[in-house]
Write a protein that binds this DNA or RNA. Structure first.
Lengths: 339, 339
DNA sequence: GGCATATCTGGGACCGCTTCCAGCCTGACG
DNA sequence: CGTCAGGCTGGAAGCGGTCCCAGATATGCC
């Protein structure tokens, strides 16, 4: 059967429900919102009418009246669309969704890459399309932070931007995690420990580097060598090559991401070093890839789902008018075979 | 400085703009919507006022008046939240976002897993919270399909559900792709070709299996053996083990996903078979993992971003009241080292 | 029984925008 | 110069809710 495109069916309105129940619209509204001051009889009548007519309040109308859309945005800044394919974001989203499930808010996902994407986001915020926003993945001076700050909407940051300290953010304990990793390498008796950092234009990159330095210095060692990567596998490989060149006697490496560790691993093996015998490797993140390398990576685990969840909870609090404290989520060392 | 939670600033309204421009609200509305019948003078005055006041029309109010929210939903049915971490979904989302960027629609992401999640989705649809919906990842009789069909909203399916033929869907050419893969193995001179299928409770699972059978039968071979997997790496490994058990002389395998192929690969190597010398392996999907196995997988490439993009375009058409045709996206064979 | 108090009720004013419509003005034409 | 067809215009009625408030009704107390 040839069937027309599904056009929205007309839903019953509050007025119709009220009429059917033989009460005023206000009364009907009250029972729907479980407001006080409504008699048993009225409540029953309205509830019956609602059930019979299959009434559901229109979101938009309600939003207009209450000035609440019931929608929060998660904005991801990514120059490269491919970057979003990183399991990291998927995990964040899973966490966010889980937390939202306990509320009656919905999730609007904004991949704001290009100028066009950004202006769409700006517009969304200024037209009051969402009640609040969560921001992820910020390098140095991400244009998104400006956009979002100007909008004057409840905002939660996932990780800290570099150029200012947001009042509300959630992040993993990057410094602590990096220290854990480095301390572990030290405890293994390694001394010529190098690090492959993330981009130094990001807070994460710097924090993990700082953790490495602190751990080294604390135990009287001197940071042996550093190469900057970009959190990707190929970036890690490149960094590893240059390190191997400049410091061929290195005996351990802390990579600020598993991706980079994986790249480094490949280069090391290709260079004939055995891992962990010749060189011990520790990564950071523990998002699946760490288990799939050969040998599997010892790494610092951060719970990205928890990150998403806590960001969401925080945002919900903010929207409710409270002022929750910012949060730093613990990380832990996961021992596998690479160190 | 202690700073209060960012509460939304009050935005100017259309009335205020109109007043400032010295015209009626209707006139102002007309220039904003580029409607005809507005004089040069009026337009200029209004446009100036808009610029001066930084006016942006309130989304919600407009939505109420036009009965259009400007939001479309992407619903993903996943029993296991982990499943969403599959890069597949990330790619879909990237495609969807890219297509939406050309419109003024935004993306609402619904991970509708639990009963709670599903009822939230139901509610969203019936309360007219979105203008249309895209549905992904459907096994046999996914409850989502029912929910969505009842809602009577423009709907596009990504892949076909098993229990009915949706009027609008986009999918990859699974049968064709599987044939490509199998034909390739045949052309390599293999004859004892087995397949690890996806769940037979999914259309994708069945279609790829059908492609395999068709290719075999077309060339006069008999389908050698089949084991059902679940598209995951561990599932693929398990299936491989049982196949190796029952048909130790197999010389090629077509796995209906790269994940399963990766699992199978591991089992094969552990069993002392060399790939591709003893056993040739072809996967399906080509979503990154195929390049990272050792040896890298020959596989059938499907463009998941294109899938997302086309779904979105189709939905936009539907919302606009047109009736676009359904689409089947081509797949192609990518030769690497495993076959 | 009278009066204060608490509970319930419906009317109506919003929320901010779109859109229909009747009235006005203009210019063109006969 | 009268008439008619336009283009412009602002008023007002909507979209479908929330919520304040004044009035009506029920309860408690002396």
């Amino acid at each position: 059967m040839a069937m027309a495109a599904q056009r929205p069916r007309r839903q019953p309105t509050l007025d119709e429900v009220a009429e059917r129940a033989g009460v005023s619209r206000s009364a009907a509204s009250r029972v729907i919102n479980k407001a006080p001051h409504v008699s048993r009889a009225t409540r029953d009548a309205v509830e019956r009418a609602i059930k019979e007519m299959g009434y559901l309040p229109n979101r938009t109308a309600r939003a207009l009246a209450t000035q609440r859309t019931g929608i929060v945005a998660l904005a991801v800044s990514h120059d490269d669309p491919e970057l979003f394919a990183d399991p990291f974001f998927a995990q964040v989203i899973v966490g966010v969704s889980a937390a939202l499930e306990e509320t009656d808010l919905h999730l609007l996902l904004c991949l704001a890459s290009s100028g066009r994407g950004r202006s769409r986001l700006t517009n969304l915020l200024h037209t009051r399309g969402v009640d609040g926003i969560m921001l992820m993945a910020l390098h140095g001076d991400d244009p998104l932070t400006h956009i979002v700050r100007r909008a004057g909407l409840p905002t939660v940051y996932g990780g800290r931007p570099l150029d200012f300290e947001p009042q509300w953010y959630v992040e993993s304990d990057n410094v602590g995690g990096a220290r854990l990793a480095t301390d572990h390498l030290i405890s293994l008796g390694r001394t010529r420990i190098v690090t492959i950092t993330g981009p130094m234009s990001t807070d994460v990159g710097r924090a993990r580097h700082r953790g490495y330095r602190e751990a080294m210095i604390m135990t009287g060692l001197t940071p042996y060598a550093t190469a900057e990567g970009d959190f990707t596998e190929t970036g890690g490989a490149a960094a590893m090559k240059s390190l191997l060149d400049s410091h061929p006697d290195l005996d351990a490496i802390f990579a600020a991401s598993d991706n980079m560790a994986a790249g480094a691993l490949r280069v090391l093996l290709d260079a004939g070093r055995s891992v962990p015998a010749d060189v011990a490797v520790v990564g950071f993140d523990d998002l699946g890839i760490a288990e799939r390398t050969d040998p599997p990576l010892t790494t610092v685990h951060q719970s990205v789902q928890a990150l998403g969840q806590e960001m969401t909870r925080m945002l919900v609090e903010l929207i409710a008018g409270h002022e929750p404290p910012s949060l730093i989520l613990p990380t832990k060392l996961v021992l596998r075979d690479s160190a």
